[in-house]
């Protein structure tokens, strides 16, 4: 159980592609993930002391915001959603002493069987990405299920048979599909946009991919609308600006 499936026999590698160029950091996916997963697969997601001084909750998806800066260039802000990457070489699975953590043979989804989990927390230590959280109320390990209870669910309309976060994202920054299939839209997206792995040096071989933000163009060369109006000298300005300049001078 806790051994990883034979990779060549894994039929599919279902996962997410997250576009860091499009994500606006609205946290809609965080909320929809929490809502779906607190009322479906496994134990609900705890919210301890929600209105108190020290709220502490379980989330399967969280959004960080980073700033990058190169010398002499404007800073660039990148919103960065992070959930389980359903790694091919998932260290969280092999460390589990009970077999509660496992990677599915048929679609590669990494799941926790909560009734076998003893809450030792070792799998969360093993995950370099912080994708696993021990539930404060249930004392079992929680993680992204890739919405396994939606994607195969024939009781919901077909359009909804994708992960809740993907369905919700208003910017279209999250994509879902089979990353082992060269004909899939996610595979092509990763090819076209240069999708990359997080912490490749950790050897986890994540299935989820991230698409890089396009570098910000240097704004100093861009069109400057207000500048001429604010400039000290306005001599020689023609057209509308020249007229405005002369009119203002007359007042």
């Amino acid at each position: 159980m806790t051994s990883l499936p034979d990779r060549t026999a894994t039929d599919k590698s279902l996962g997410l592609v997250i576009d860091l160029d499009t994500c606006v950091g609205c946290h809609a996916c965080v909320i929809s993930c929490k809502e779906w997963n607190t009322s479906n697969y496994g134990a609900p997601l705890a919210d301890l002391d929600p209105y108190g001084a020290e709220p502490l909750g379980t989330f399967l998806n969280r959004i960080h915001t980073f700033e990058t800066a190169q010398p002499g260039k404007p800073a660039q802000v990148v919103h960065f959603p992070k959930s389980c990457l359903h790694c091919e070489d998932a260290p969280c699975v092999t460390v589990c002493p009970t077999g509660a953590s496992y990677k599915r043979q048929d679609d590669g989804i990494v799941l926790v069987n909560e009734s076998d989990c003893i809450g030792c927390g070792l799998c969360a230590w093993a995950c370099p990405y912080g994708a696993r959280e021990m539930d404060g109320a249930e004392k079992v390990m929680k993680k992204c299920t890739l919405c396994v209870d939606r994607i195969y669910n024939e009781n919901i309309p077909e359009v909804d048979r994708i992960p809740s976060c993907v369905r919700t994202c208003p910017a279209g920054a999250r994509h879902f599909g089979d990353l082992s299939d060269p004909d899939s839209s996610v595979f092509k997206l990763v090819e076209a946009r240069g999708g990359f792995d997080l912490m490749p040096e950790q050897g986890t071989k994540p299935v989820n991919k991230y698409l890089p933000p396009r570098p910000k163009t240097d704004t100093s060369d861009g069109p400057d609308v207000l500048g001429p109006l604010l400039a000290e000298g306005t001599e020689g300005a023609g057209g509308f600006l020249g007229w405005l300049d002369r009119a203002l001078d007359r007042i």
């Binding site: 860091l20 965080v30 909750g57 989330f59 969280r62 959004i63 960080h64 915001t65 980073f66 700033e67 990058t68 800066a69 190169q70 010398p71 260039k73 660039q76 802000v77 990148v78 960065f80 992070k82 990359f196 792995d197 997080l198 991230y210 890089p212 933000p213 570098p215």
Partner: peptide, 16 residues
Amino acid sequence: TGLGHLGRVRLLESPH
């Protein structure tokens, strides 16, 4: 973060 090509990476806002 895979953002190294954009320069030094600094946390601007924590997720919570």
